[in-house]
Amino acid sequence: MMDATHMRTAPGAADKKATKMFVEGATKYYQTRTGSVHALDNVSLEVRDGEFLCILGPSGCGKSTLLWSMGGLHDLSGGEIRLGHEKISKPHPEIAMIFQDANLLPWRNLAANIALPFELKRKKVDQERVDTLLRRVNLKGFETKFPRELSGGMQQRASIVRSLSVNPSLLLMDEPFGALDAFTRDEMNLLIQEIWMETGKTIVFVTHSISEAIFLADRVVVMSARPGRIASIFDIDIPRPRPVDIQTRPDFIERVLHIKASIDHGRSPNEGLAIT
């Protein structure tokens, strides 16, 4: 597929743990006041060790539900999710999540925000690791700043540091850059690609942007909505590191159109009629 694994260097090398996640027949109903919502329907998926997997789909297709279930934040109505041989039914120390809008705690400064996972685990902050990470994402020196004093990109970088600080082997990212402007988003996409290549983490990344998915992923899983199902899976064999301007190349655009067409075909005829 691609050989990023060979390019990976410290500090990631020492972090390496074998991670394989299996989603088997994941089915999920939400009980709401107006009735039952069928969010996931028999989703089966294997997340390979060290891969960058993007889950792509329209809003309401259950991609966040799938991710939250992988993170052990949601129970499934049916099926199961395993990390290696362990069944995921609650948050797992090897799994860290990164949320939309950075999700920093506004009453804590940056250092205290990054200390949160350690606090919750009643451990001493691994300051050396945190400092290395802060330097890596250019946030050294901003430790005493509060989230409201930081730009959206900086906030999301801080949240990445927070997640990596506890050295998980699997990162689950829930539309992390959705709220950022296009330029910051490109920047963040480059950064996350670099971090992934350096650390060898397995990343599952939820997005509704086709080009973001293609830019980042080894594999793009396209989901269809209501109920959420896997519509198709695309291998993205573009060599790494991928530069930002790759997105303007014809072959990249061709991939975008290809995936877009597959999503449009997945629509039910009724929806198509409703447009006209």
Partner: peptide, 27 residues
Amino acid sequence: LAKIALARSFGASTFQIFTKIRIPMAM
């Protein structure tokens, strides 16, 4: 929900969610 999910994802207990998230947020 996002803040609670965040704490939960790092393995927070219900009590920790109360002291680290709910109380500061209500402060």
